[in-house]
């Protein structure tokens, strides 16, 4: 039964991704203007325009081009950039790696910290510590992320001079140097995503605290932290995973502004540049990667939620 449920989730995920890919393709298709004259400029002769269309397969029917694009995307070939005629995969590869590195960096700090603080807040519910954790994390997400970024730059880089304000990374850099260079953007993102996860953890745990089995655990004479960590947390896993997945997705998809502020060579920045240059094929590819990340992470959360339910995992 559980296998069926999980497979169903995967099927739904794949279907969603297909629909999204179609939306992305047709949205770009519907944009006004002719791509060939956009790229070649007003002075292009009809012959060069025709040659360009021929070379880029623009004369084929849209449906055929969609299937062609989709097939290529599945094998990692996103076609050529309109702006400079280089393969998009080559253009994007390093950027994707950079974005995932930064997101992973932030996630490794933010997820355990948020869940830990959420547990603490639930454990000392109603105390000064609880209120401090809740209000401070809430205060941080109330600011726009670029504002948080500038405050951190002002503090740690302009005044204290501890960290660089520009997150410049190059392919040959060592891990230590890379972590150091990207500390401020990572910290910005930690602050942005933490509140949500922490509050959800706290709420999910507090919800359970009134249940008879939690009272039972207390009446066994167990320590309070054990009641919360061993008896409450495993039953709160599904809602917590859901929020963690949403935030991990946000770390990858929603970091455009942070990348721009720190001039970090990630996918977000590429997206912004490509939109400015009207480089539609690159925009398409970036959007597809974002969408796929989002869907895969949510899919994982769903599956973990199913697997963490003992009723489904151990049927009668």
């Amino acid at each position: 039964m559980i296998l069926k449920l999980v497979l169903r989730r995967f099927a739904i995920g794949a279907l969603t991704l297909l629909v999204v890919s179609a939306l992305i393709f047709w949205a770009v298709e519907l944009l006004p203007g002719d791509i060939a004259s956009e790229v070649l400029g007003q002075s292009a002769t009809p012959e060069t325009l025709a040659a360009f269309r021929e070379r880029n397969g623009l004369t084929d029917p849209a449906m055929l081009r969609y299937l062609h694009w989709l097939g290529g995307a599945l094998t990692g070939d996103f076609g050529l950039s309109l702006a400079n005629q280089r393969p998009i995969a080559e253009l994007i590869g390093q950027r994707v790696a950079n974005t995932f590195f930064l997101a992973g960096y932030a996630a490794v700090i933010a997820v355990p910290l948020a869940i830990g603080l959420g547990l603490l807040a639930a454990l000392y519910r109603g105390s000064a510590l609880d209120r401090f954790i809740s209000t401070s994390t809430l205060a941080v997400i109330s600011f726009p992320e670029f504002f948080v970024a500038y405050i951190l730059i002002l503090l740690f880089s302009a005044w204290l001079g501890w960290f660089p304000s520009l997150a410049t990374v190059s392919p040959g850099m060592g891990l230590g140097a890379r972590l150091y260079a990207t500390f401020l953007p990572a910290l910005t993102m930690v602050l942005i995503v933490m509140a949500h996860m922490m509050r959800m953890t706290r709420a999910a745990i507090v919800n359970l605290l009134a249940l008879p089995y939690i009272e039972m655990a207390q009446l066994k004479g167990l320590r309070r932290w054990r009641v919360i960590a061993v008896h409450a947390l495993p039953n709160a896993v599904a809602p917590i995973f859901t929020v963690v997945a949403l935030n991990l997705a946000y770390l990858i998809v929603g970091v455009v502004l942070v990348e721009v502020v720190f001039v970090y060579p990630g996918l977000g920045q590429l997206l912004v540049d490509s939109v400015a240059k009207r480089d539609m094929t690159v925009v398409q590819a970036a959007c597809l990667i974002f969408a796929a990340t989002y869907i895969v992470l949510n899919l994982l959360a769903d599956v973990l939620g199913i697997v963490s339910n003992p009723r489904l995992l151990h049927p009668r």
């Binding site: 249940l211 008879p212 089995y213 009272e215 039972m216 655990a217 207390q218 009446l219 066994k220 004479g221 167990l222 320590r223 309070r224 008896h231 495993p234 039953n235 003992p310 009723r311």
Partner: peptide, 28 residues
């Protein structure tokens, strides 16, 4: 205080609840 209660609860005085379905932790 909580320390003394922990030494007594579960160990010297134990509790059996009305609904065992609700009083057992479903995850263990």
């Amino acid at each position: 205080d909580a320390r003394l209660l922990r030494q007594v609860q579960g160990r010297r005085i134990a509790y059996v609840a009305q609904s065992s379905a609700a009083a057992f932790n479903p995850a263990w």
